[in-house]
Amino acid sequence: MTLLPYFLIGSAFGVILVEAEVVSWFRIQEMFRFDAFHMYGIIGTAVLTAAISLLTIKRLGVRGPDGEPLGFTPKVLGTGARYLAGGTVFGLGWALTGACPGPLVALVGAGTPVMLVAFLSALGGTWTYGRLRPKLPH
C-alpha cells in the first residue's frame, strides 16, 4: 500500500484549511458567536457534498479492492454518553485553541509554531483518555 496518495489528499486539505481561513482562531470565534456565515457555509456544504457522494457510491454499489462495499462502519450509539461528554470536552478545547485537530497541525506549518505545544498536549490528552478509558462512562 503506497501512502503517497493519502499524503497528497492531505496536502490539498491543508491548503484549503489555510486559504479558507478555517485555521483562523478569529473565524472560530465568529462561528461560536454566530457572527458570520463563513464556517457554517463551509461545514454545511462539506456535509452536503459528502452526503451526496456517499449516496452515489452506495447506489452504484462501488466496492473496494477486497470486494467489500465502500462506506463507513456505523458508530455504536450505546447510551450516547461518550459522544455528548467527549464532544463537550473537545468543544471546550476547540474554543480555547481556536483549532480542531486538522487546523492544529496546519497552524504549526502556517506561522504559529507554538501550536506544536498544543499538538503535543493533545497527544497527552488522548493518552490520558486511553489510561482512564475503563473508568469512563461510554
Binding site: V47, G86, F90, P101
Partner: peptide, 28 residues
C-alpha cells in the same frame, strides 16, 4: 495552548472523532 490542546486530544478520543470524523463524515 496547553489546556486547550489537552482538551482537544482528550475530547476527540472520548467522542471517537473530531470535526472531520463526526461533523462531516458522520453527519453525511
Amino acid at each position: 495552548i496547553v489546556i486547550g490542546g489537552f482538551l482537544v486530544g482528550f475530547g476527540t478520543a472520548y467522542a471517537g472523532g473530531c470535526t472531520s470524523g463526526h461533523a462531516i463524515s458522520g453527519l453525511a
